[in-house]
């Protein structure tokens, strides 16, 4: 079981993330100049791009957790896997929502089935499906093994989302680099990216602890004796 000190560390991470996100968003919304063609609409970039990076990071972490669980059978990796997939799905849904809000005034449509958007939709439904799978499996061991295997298979889509704008003609633009973005826009982007990183890692740590508590109940012997797994 996690100690109270680790919980405080997670909460501190969440708090730091919120502070950074507020500071970065204030900078992006009020201090940074508008983009010369898109104007104020471009300011959504300060959450959209950091959300994309962090969704990808959360799913990379989920992939690592899945491998670690299957190799060690240590329950803590299953708890982290569940938390990381939930975070990856939430961030991916936020990503699509922000993207739609940006797309309407620039592209002229809320959504279109271009390679980047389609592969991102696959990401949402594949990892969302794993959460559904977990909800249906009552046996903790089966639930953990199935969802870890499914997570590894679904992860094939994550690099495809990244490369989709390089491999295929798409409506979505390719990745920007510091050279293609004015330096006036750099800091709000970075601060928000780091803010969201602290926010989700803190939340995932807290969520994994909840998972561990539930698992302790599930693995406890029916006579109310001491739990078999205390981790």
């Amino acid at each position: 079981m996690r100690t109270a000190g680790q919980s405080r560390l997670s909460l501190a991470s969440v708090a730091l993330g919120v502070v950074l996100l507020v500071a970065g968003s204030y900078w992006g919304l009020a201090r940074a100049p508008p983009e010369i063609f898109m104007g104020d609409v471009q300011r959504i970039m300060y959450v959209h791009v950091p959300t994309a990076w962090n969704a990808m990071l959360a799913l990379v972490f989920a992939f690592v957790c899945a491998l670690m669980f299957l190799f060690t059978n240590d329950w803590k990796w299953d708890n982290r896997l569940e938390a990381a997939i939930e975070m990856g799905v939430v961030l991916s849904i936020l990503l699509c929502t922000q993207g739609a809000i940006w797309a309407k005034p620039t592209w002229g449509v809320w959504w279109d089935w271009d390679p980047r958007l389609t592969t991102t939709a696959v990401q949402v439904f594949a990892f969302g499906g794993i959460l559904a799978l977990r909800a249906f499996a009552a046996d903790p061991m089966k639930r953990a093994v199935w969802s870890a295997v499914a997570c590894i298979v679904a992860f094939a889509d994550v690099p495809i989302v990244y490369f989709s704008v390089k491999w295929w003609n798409s409506l979505h633009q390719a990745q920007s680099t510091p050279d293609t973005v004015s330096s006036a826009f750099h800091w709000p982007l970075r601060i928000n990216a780091i803010g969201i990183l602290f926010l989700w890692t803190g939340l995932v740590a807290l969520r994994a602890r909840l998972g561990a508590l539930r698992l302790r109940g599930e693995l406890a012997p029916p006579d109310g004796g001491p739990p078999l797994v205390t981790r």
Binding site: A32, P33, Q42, W107, L171, Q173, Q175, V181, S182
Partner: peptide, 18 residues
């Protein structure tokens, strides 16, 4: 149906490197 796509460049108005 006419869609506009934009590239990966974002420029501030006063940017000397435009």
């Amino acid at each position: 149906r006419l869609l506009v796509s934009h590239d990966n460049k974002y420029r501030a108005p006063a940017d000397k490197n435009v």
